[in-house]
Protein backbone atom coordinates (compact mmCIF):
# COMPACT_ATOMS: atom_id res chain seq x y z
CA UNK A 1 0.00 0.00 0.00
CA UNK A 2 2.83 2.38 -0.73
CA UNK A 3 3.18 4.87 -3.52
CA UNK A 4 6.60 6.20 -4.31
CA UNK A 5 7.02 9.64 -5.75
CA UNK A 6 9.97 11.85 -6.41
CA UNK A 7 9.55 15.28 -4.83
CA UNK A 8 12.35 17.81 -5.40
CA UNK A 9 14.63 14.92 -6.25
CA UNK A 10 13.82 13.05 -3.07
CA UNK A 11 12.21 9.65 -3.36
CA UNK A 12 9.28 9.64 -1.00
CA UNK A 13 7.03 6.79 -0.02
CA UNK A 14 3.40 7.66 0.67
CA UNK A 15 1.25 5.13 2.47
CA UNK A 16 -2.47 4.45 2.79
CA UNK A 17 -3.48 7.21 0.41
CA UNK A 18 -7.01 5.78 0.16
CA UNK A 19 -7.58 5.82 3.89
CA UNK A 20 -10.75 7.77 4.68
CA UNK A 21 -9.91 10.71 6.95
CA UNK A 22 -13.29 12.47 6.83
CA UNK A 23 -15.92 9.72 7.03
CA UNK A 24 -18.84 12.08 6.33
CA UNK A 25 -17.30 13.64 3.26
CA UNK A 26 -15.25 10.66 2.15
CA UNK A 27 -12.04 12.71 1.93
CA UNK A 28 -8.89 10.62 2.19
CA UNK A 29 -5.36 10.95 3.42
CA UNK A 30 -4.42 11.30 -0.25
CA UNK A 31 -6.58 14.44 -0.39
CA UNK A 32 -4.64 15.92 2.54
CA UNK A 33 -1.30 15.29 0.84
CA UNK A 34 -2.73 16.66 -2.37
CA UNK A 35 -3.89 19.82 -0.60
CA UNK A 36 -0.53 20.47 1.01
CA UNK A 37 1.17 19.82 -2.30
CA UNK A 38 -0.91 22.61 -3.82
CA UNK A 39 -0.88 25.09 -0.94
CA UNK A 40 2.85 24.63 -0.31
CA UNK A 41 4.05 27.97 -1.80
CA UNK A 42 1.73 29.87 0.52
CA UNK A 43 1.81 27.90 3.75
CA UNK A 44 5.57 27.43 3.78
CA UNK A 45 6.14 31.13 4.58
CA UNK A 46 4.45 30.57 7.91
CA UNK A 47 6.35 27.37 8.71
CA UNK A 48 9.94 28.04 7.63
CA UNK A 49 12.56 27.87 10.40
CA UNK A 50 9.88 27.24 13.02
CA UNK A 51 9.86 24.16 15.26
CA UNK A 52 6.76 22.16 14.43
CA UNK A 53 4.45 20.51 16.96
CA UNK A 54 3.21 17.30 15.46
CA UNK A 55 -0.43 16.41 15.94
CA UNK A 56 -0.67 13.10 14.14
CA UNK A 57 -4.06 11.73 13.19
CA UNK A 58 -3.31 8.56 11.26
CA UNK A 59 -6.95 7.50 11.59
CA UNK A 60 -8.30 10.82 10.40
CA UNK A 61 -11.27 12.21 12.27
CA UNK A 62 -12.11 8.79 13.72
CA UNK A 63 -10.06 9.54 16.84
CA UNK A 64 -8.24 12.42 18.43
CA UNK A 65 -4.81 11.39 17.28
CA UNK A 66 -1.73 12.11 19.36
CA UNK A 67 1.04 14.67 19.78
CA UNK A 68 4.34 13.20 18.79
CA UNK A 69 7.38 14.40 20.64
CA UNK A 70 10.88 13.76 19.39
CA UNK A 71 9.58 13.39 15.85
CA UNK A 72 12.95 14.42 14.51
CA UNK A 73 14.61 11.22 15.70
CA UNK A 74 12.54 8.97 13.46
CA UNK A 75 12.59 11.24 10.45
CA UNK A 76 14.54 10.50 7.27
CA UNK A 77 17.93 12.15 7.03
CA UNK A 78 16.79 14.88 4.66
CA UNK A 79 14.30 16.22 7.23
CA UNK A 80 15.77 19.08 9.25
CA UNK A 81 15.43 18.67 12.98
CA UNK A 82 16.85 20.38 16.06
CA UNK A 83 17.01 19.42 19.72
CA UNK A 84 15.37 22.05 21.93
CA UNK A 85 15.14 22.01 25.66
CA UNK A 86 11.60 21.51 26.87
CA UNK A 87 10.77 22.84 30.31
CA UNK A 88 7.64 20.76 30.63
CA UNK A 89 9.39 17.53 29.61
CA UNK A 90 12.61 18.55 31.44
CA UNK A 91 14.77 17.33 28.60
CA UNK A 92 15.73 18.01 25.01
CA UNK A 93 13.11 17.27 22.39
CA UNK A 94 13.90 16.82 18.76
CA UNK A 95 11.74 19.10 16.69
CA UNK A 96 11.17 18.90 12.96
CA UNK A 97 11.72 22.13 11.04
CA UNK A 98 9.68 22.28 7.86
CA UNK A 99 11.54 24.33 5.27
CA UNK A 100 10.66 22.57 2.05
CA UNK A 101 8.01 20.65 0.16
CA UNK A 102 9.28 17.13 0.85
CA UNK A 103 9.18 17.82 4.60
CA UNK A 104 5.67 19.27 4.38
CA UNK A 105 4.44 16.21 2.50
CA UNK A 106 6.32 13.97 4.92
CA UNK A 107 4.34 15.54 7.77
CA UNK A 108 1.10 15.08 5.85
CA UNK A 109 2.01 11.45 5.25
CA UNK A 110 2.52 11.03 9.01
CA UNK A 111 -1.14 11.97 9.35
CA UNK A 112 -0.64 15.60 10.34
CA UNK A 113 -3.85 17.21 9.19
CA UNK A 114 -2.95 20.40 11.03
CA UNK A 115 0.31 22.29 10.81
CA UNK A 116 1.32 23.78 14.18
CA UNK A 117 4.48 25.89 13.97
CA UNK A 118 5.96 27.95 16.78
CA UNK A 119 5.52 31.72 16.89
CA UNK A 120 9.30 32.22 16.75
CA UNK A 121 12.05 31.11 14.37
CA UNK A 122 15.27 29.23 15.21
CA UNK A 123 17.46 32.36 15.01
CA UNK A 124 15.29 34.25 17.45
CA UNK A 125 13.67 31.45 19.39
CA UNK A 126 12.90 33.59 22.43
CA UNK A 127 11.32 36.39 20.42
CA UNK A 128 8.10 35.65 18.57
CA UNK A 129 7.39 37.19 15.18
CA UNK A 130 3.84 37.99 16.24
CA UNK A 131 1.39 37.62 19.05
CA UNK A 132 -2.01 36.02 18.67
CA UNK A 133 -5.41 36.81 20.13
CA UNK A 134 -7.34 33.56 19.99
CA UNK A 135 -11.09 34.14 20.06
CA UNK A 136 -12.47 30.82 21.12
CA UNK A 137 -16.27 30.60 21.49
CA UNK A 138 -18.12 28.22 23.79
CA UNK A 139 -21.02 26.02 22.79
CA UNK A 140 -23.72 28.63 23.11
CA UNK A 141 -21.97 31.56 21.47
CA UNK A 142 -22.98 32.64 18.00
CA UNK A 143 -20.44 33.37 15.31
CA UNK A 144 -21.84 36.92 15.25
CA UNK A 145 -20.50 37.31 18.80
CA UNK A 146 -17.10 36.06 17.65
CA UNK A 147 -17.21 38.68 14.89
CA UNK A 148 -18.15 41.38 17.38
CA UNK A 149 -15.31 40.40 19.69
CA UNK A 150 -12.85 40.42 16.78
CA UNK A 151 -13.98 43.90 15.83
CA UNK A 152 -13.56 45.24 19.35
CA UNK A 153 -10.03 43.82 19.42
CA UNK A 154 -9.39 45.38 16.04
CA UNK A 155 -10.66 48.74 17.27
CA UNK A 156 -8.39 48.57 20.31
CA UNK A 157 -5.39 47.60 18.19
CA UNK A 158 -6.23 50.42 15.78
CA UNK A 159 -6.24 52.86 18.70
CA UNK A 160 -2.90 51.47 19.78
CA UNK A 161 -1.64 51.97 16.24
CA UNK A 162 -0.93 48.25 15.87
CA UNK A 163 -1.44 46.42 12.59
CA UNK A 164 -3.58 43.31 12.89
CA UNK A 165 -4.38 40.38 10.64
CA UNK A 166 -7.40 38.13 11.17
CA UNK A 167 -7.87 34.55 10.05
CA UNK A 168 -10.48 31.93 10.72
CA UNK A 169 -9.25 29.31 13.13
CA UNK A 170 -10.74 26.74 10.78
CA UNK A 171 -13.04 25.63 13.57
CA UNK A 172 -15.44 28.04 15.30
CA UNK A 173 -13.16 30.93 16.23
CA UNK A 174 -11.03 33.71 14.83
CA UNK A 175 -7.30 34.30 15.35
CA UNK A 176 -5.93 37.82 15.24
CA UNK A 177 -2.19 38.16 14.62
CA UNK A 178 -0.17 41.27 15.42
CA UNK A 179 3.36 41.50 13.95
CA UNK A 180 6.20 41.95 16.46
CA UNK A 181 9.22 41.61 14.20
CA UNK A 182 11.02 39.32 16.71
CA UNK A 183 11.82 42.37 18.85
CA UNK A 184 10.08 41.42 22.09
CA UNK A 185 10.17 38.49 24.45
CA UNK A 186 7.37 35.95 24.78
CA UNK A 187 6.65 37.44 28.21
CA UNK A 188 6.21 40.92 26.76
CA UNK A 189 4.10 39.58 23.91
CA UNK A 190 1.91 37.72 26.37
CA UNK A 191 1.50 40.76 28.60
CA UNK A 192 0.54 42.98 25.73
CA UNK A 193 -1.95 40.39 24.53
CA UNK A 194 -3.27 40.15 28.07
CA UNK A 195 -3.77 43.94 28.19
CA UNK A 196 -5.79 43.86 24.97
CA UNK A 197 -7.72 40.84 26.26
CA UNK A 198 -8.66 42.61 29.50
CA UNK A 199 -9.77 45.73 27.67
CA UNK A 200 -11.80 43.70 25.22
CA UNK A 201 -13.47 41.78 27.99
CA UNK A 202 -14.38 45.09 29.66
CA UNK A 203 -16.11 46.18 26.47
CA UNK A 204 -18.03 42.93 26.09
CA UNK A 205 -18.65 41.68 29.63
CA UNK A 206 -21.85 39.84 28.70
CA UNK A 207 -20.37 37.16 26.54
CA UNK A 208 -16.58 37.18 26.80
CA UNK A 209 -14.32 35.81 29.48
CA UNK A 210 -10.65 35.46 30.33
CA UNK A 211 -11.33 32.45 32.54
CA UNK A 212 -9.12 29.66 31.39
CA UNK A 213 -10.89 26.79 33.10
CA UNK A 214 -13.73 25.55 30.96
CA UNK A 215 -15.96 24.59 33.90
CA UNK A 216 -15.66 28.05 35.43
CA UNK A 217 -16.14 29.77 32.10
CA UNK A 218 -19.44 28.10 31.36
CA UNK A 219 -21.07 27.63 27.99
CA UNK A 220 -22.10 31.19 27.29
CA UNK A 221 -18.77 32.96 27.13
CA UNK A 222 -16.18 33.39 24.45
CA UNK A 223 -12.69 32.72 25.73
CA UNK A 224 -10.27 35.47 24.75
CA UNK A 225 -7.14 33.40 24.90
CA UNK A 226 -3.91 35.40 25.21
CA UNK A 227 -1.93 32.49 26.61
CA UNK A 228 -1.10 31.14 23.18
CA UNK A 229 1.78 33.60 23.31
CA UNK A 230 4.14 31.38 25.23
CA UNK A 231 7.21 29.66 23.95
CA UNK A 232 6.35 26.34 22.41
CA UNK A 233 2.63 27.05 22.38
CA UNK A 234 1.17 26.57 18.92
CA UNK A 235 -1.92 27.21 16.85
CA UNK A 236 -2.81 25.91 13.43
CA UNK A 237 -1.04 28.30 11.06
CA UNK A 238 -2.46 30.20 8.11
CA UNK A 239 -3.65 27.80 5.36
CA UNK A 240 -3.45 24.82 7.70
CA UNK A 241 -6.17 22.23 7.26
CA UNK A 242 -8.23 21.45 10.34
CA UNK A 243 -9.56 18.04 11.34
CA UNK A 244 -13.12 19.40 11.27
CA UNK A 245 -16.27 18.72 9.29
CA UNK A 246 -15.96 19.88 5.70
CA UNK A 247 -12.14 19.87 5.80
CA UNK A 248 -11.98 23.54 6.75
CA UNK A 249 -8.86 25.65 6.42
CA UNK A 250 -7.54 28.34 8.75
CA UNK A 251 -8.08 31.18 6.30
CA UNK A 252 -6.59 34.69 6.32
CA UNK A 253 -9.28 37.33 6.02
CA UNK A 254 -9.58 40.90 4.94
CA UNK A 255 -10.92 42.90 7.89
CA UNK A 256 -13.74 43.97 5.57
CA UNK A 257 -14.89 40.38 5.55
CA UNK A 258 -15.11 40.18 9.34
CA UNK A 259 -18.80 41.05 9.56
CA UNK A 260 -22.14 39.35 9.57
CA UNK A 261 -22.38 36.86 6.76
CA UNK A 262 -18.92 35.46 7.33
CA UNK A 263 -18.97 31.69 7.87
CA UNK A 264 -15.76 29.87 8.74
CA UNK A 265 -17.18 26.74 7.14
CA UNK A 266 -17.09 28.50 3.74
CA UNK A 267 -13.32 28.02 3.51
CA UNK A 268 -12.30 24.47 2.80
CA UNK A 269 -9.46 22.59 1.16
CA UNK A 270 -11.59 22.48 -2.00
CA UNK A 271 -11.82 26.22 -2.57
CA UNK A 272 -8.94 27.84 -0.73
CA UNK A 273 -6.46 27.73 -3.61
CA UNK A 274 -8.91 29.63 -5.81
CA UNK A 275 -9.38 32.20 -3.07
CA UNK A 276 -5.63 32.73 -2.74
CA UNK A 277 -5.35 33.13 -6.50
CA UNK A 278 -8.06 35.78 -6.37
CA UNK A 279 -7.20 37.65 -3.17
CA UNK A 280 -3.50 37.01 -2.86
CA UNK A 281 -1.92 36.17 0.48
CA UNK A 282 -3.77 38.41 2.95
CA UNK A 283 -1.47 37.33 5.77
CA UNK A 284 1.96 38.38 4.51
CA UNK A 285 1.93 41.54 6.69
CA UNK A 286 2.24 39.32 9.77
CA UNK A 287 5.88 38.65 8.92
CA UNK A 288 6.68 42.24 7.98
CA UNK A 289 7.40 45.24 10.18
CA UNK A 290 6.58 44.71 13.83
CA UNK A 291 4.80 47.16 16.07
CA UNK A 292 6.50 49.58 18.47
CA UNK A 293 5.08 48.20 21.67
CA UNK A 294 5.98 51.17 23.88
CA UNK A 295 4.31 53.55 21.44
CA UNK A 296 1.23 51.32 21.32
CA UNK A 297 0.89 51.24 25.11
CA UNK A 298 1.24 55.01 25.36
CA UNK A 299 -1.43 55.43 22.69
CA UNK A 300 -3.74 53.09 24.56
CA UNK A 301 -3.17 54.96 27.81
CA UNK A 302 -3.84 58.33 26.25
CA UNK A 303 -7.30 57.28 25.11
Amino acid sequence: METTKSINGIKMAFSHLDKIFWPDEGYTKGDVIDYYNKVYPHIIKYMKERPESLLRMPNGLADKGFFQKDAGLNAPEWVKHVPLHSESAEKDINYIICNDKPTLLYLANLGCIEMNPWNSRLDTLDKPDYFVMDIDPSEQNTFEQVIETANVIKELLDKAGAASFPKTSGATGIHIYVPLGAKYTYEQAKNFANTIAIMTQEQLPDFTSLERTLSKRGKKHIYIDYLQNRKGQTLACAYSLRPKAGATVSTPLDWKEVKKGLHPSDFTMNNIIKRIEKKGDLFSGVLLKGIDMMKCIKQLESK
Binding site: V152, E155, L156, K159, Y184, T185, E187, Q188, N191, F192, N194, T195, I198, M199, E202, Q203, M293, M294, I297, L300, E301, K303
Partner: peptide
Amino acid sequence: PKFKIIHNKSKDLMEQLKASLDTG
Protein backbone atom coordinates in the same frame (compact mmCIF):
# COMPACT_ATOMS: atom_id res chain seq x y z
CA PRO B 1 -17.14 51.93 22.84
CA LYS B 2 -15.31 54.24 25.22
CA PHE B 3 -11.89 53.13 26.24
CA LYS B 4 -11.40 55.68 28.96
CA ILE B 5 -12.21 53.43 31.85
CA ILE B 6 -9.19 51.25 32.15
CA HIS B 7 -9.36 48.61 34.78
CA ASN B 8 -6.61 48.69 37.35
CA LYS B 9 -5.59 45.26 36.25
CA SER B 10 -4.74 46.34 32.73
CA LYS B 11 -3.16 49.52 34.14
CA ASP B 12 -0.82 47.50 36.33
CA LEU B 13 -0.03 45.25 33.47
CA MET B 14 0.78 48.18 31.22
CA GLU B 15 3.08 49.69 33.83
CA GLN B 16 4.82 46.36 34.20
CA LEU B 17 5.12 46.05 30.45
CA LYS B 18 6.49 49.56 30.09
CA ALA B 19 9.09 48.86 32.77
CA SER B 20 10.19 45.69 30.98
CA LEU B 21 10.37 47.51 27.63
CA ASP B 22 12.41 50.27 29.24
CA THR B 23 15.05 47.92 30.60
CA GLY B 24 15.12 46.26 27.20
